[in-house]
Design a protein around this nucleic acid. Structure first.
Lengths: 186, 186, 186, 186
DNA sequence: TATGAATGAGCCTTCATTCAT
DNA sequence: AATGAATGAAGGCTCATTCAT
């Protein structure tokens, strides 16, 4: 049974994250991760039950970081509309940064992959965005009345798609997304 | 050139589509597909040169069918705005109807399968939508000026996501998408 | 049980020989042979029990042709020494002509392959050459006294090696071999 | 770079040599070699990058050892003619002693493995022999003038063949080869 | 008899996971 | 605890051979 030492575990997550950020799941093998950590495969397996779980944990931590950054924005003394825009920027940057995990995010959002077991992150993210959007919607707006998540979902997906299809055009991409948001809310 | 029997080939595409819909490229092996078809691997290889090509063909077929239905709409004597809405409906219905297509579309749109050489169909679809959108944009509009594809891409992706996340709510979904489109174009 | 029709069988051998002459055993598959014959694989299997046997038969026929050509030389009204030189030329040309089978010959001569079951051809060939060489050796010569096959073996092998290592230099190759023979017999 | 444990590696080469000696490249599969070694295929692949390379290494090792022993003879204070005879004896003994080497030598000499990229060792050996033979040839001799390798090639091949076809008759075999050489040079 | 689609064992190679040291 | 060599199940693909038509 793997003994779990806090320090090492964090190291493992960090290393794995670094690798998974740049490469797909299949492109990374346990030896690479062990090498990156400067330990033996066997040792890695003392701290991690298997590759999938490790990946899943990285996935979770990865999202958590994004959540944390969004939470930071919550504390800023800015308007809700500004806050939404901050959210978008945070999401954009995080998604852009983590290539390897981006795929997982997409799959997760679009329910593409059932085996990356729903860890509730998609729901948390959408709900977080939606809460804010709700405040910005006009009374009487259909979306507000039904309080569905469609706008939030669309925003998040659009970020993903823009990062994929127009890489290196952060400015334009964000401008577009914000414009889309604003015209919807107008 | 392998002898191509119409029926079998379509069957193969259908089966592969069904499997690729629920699982990643790497998760599916040729034996699975053969088993699903009730034939031997060797037989499968009489009709398909290799796994990659099969996967690619699944994508192509998916797109092509959608594409064809959109072409039908082009011939109708309706306004451009109506045509766009028809496009949306076609896409929505197609995507909803043919479960198998959905994941393929998502992967293609999001470049999830970038290693699988691009087959240019995604570009065709986006360009088709964009051409129409262009006519509807106001002069001076940034998106029109740059004539980028962002709006088209967003529309298509949104359809996909709505179908996935709000199945069985066709009315609401399409209403939302059209509303989004209209507010953007306003 | 395969029915054997004379005409077809000869055709098969001829076709297979043509292919095996230019390519190694592994490079040729039954489909190729069938295609070359203009029949279906299944049909081919009506006349031939399996690939190995077919190959073996081709091998035998191939040698037999060489033997036949050598036998022709026996009938010529020439000296033994001239006859030996004719033998060398026949062997050289035949070996040169049949690339694919050349390998089999080498293996056979050098006992390299035990699965091409000894069909006695090597022995026949060596013995045939030796009989003639014996007549040319001087009395008192060790080789003659022991009547071993060493000279014949060396000649044959040398032909093979020359064809392999100095392709396209027939003149020089044969000159060398004959010179070697003559100096040995002198 | 796979971790290389001296003992295992030599064992692998020895085993592979033993197998490749009796069977063609295609007839041997990695599982056989692993089984022969008493290890798993995966383990074998820890020491060998792939089948082709393993095969190639078997060849190289075979040749190199023979080569080394010949280099020893070069240092002796003897005449060139004596040196050639020493070469012949070295080759004979080496070939006779190490059963495994024989088939590899034959294949290499006869270019039987031309698809396996040439490793240049055959050329080295022939050239080494030829250099010495050149010194012994009479001026005006055709072979000397053209400085081709035919005599060297023939000598080496003849050694191989004699060992194969007349095992246990070392004396007679070497006598024959030397006699052949001498009559040629006379 | 002829056909050729179907079969499936077999091959090379990879890599997550285990376990003796 | 740490190590990393060993394991062997899989996976993509081929091709000699079979058999239903």
């Amino acid at each position: 049974m793997p003994k779990i030492i806090k320090g090492i575990n964090e190291n493992i997550i960090a290393c794995a994250m670094k690798l998974f950020e740049h490469h797909d799941y299949e492109e990374i093998d346990m030896k690479m991760i062990a090498d990156e950590l400067g330990i033996a495969v066997g040792t890695l397996y003392n701290y991690v039950p298997n590759k999938k779980t490790l990946y899943l944990n990285v996935h979770k931590m990865s999202w958590q970081k994004t959540f944390d950054r969004m939470d930071q924005k919550d504390k800023l003394p800015i308007s809700d509309r500004e806050k939404i825009e901050e959210y978008i920027v945070v999401l954009y940057e995080d998604i852009e940064k983590r290539k390897g995990i981006r795929r997982a995010l997409i799959k997760n959002i679009t329910s593409l992959s059932e085996d990356i077991e729903a860890n509730g992150i998609k729901e948390r993210l959408i709900s977080k965005m939606n809460k804010l959007l709700f405040l910005l919607m006009k009374d009487g707006d259909d979306s507000k009345e039904h309080n569905d998540n469609r706008l939030a979902e669309t925003l998040i997906t659009t970020i993903l798609v823009m990062v994929e299809l127009h890489p290196g055009e952060k400015e334009k991409n964000i401008t577009f997304i914000v414009k889309m948001l604003n015209s919807f809310l107008r």
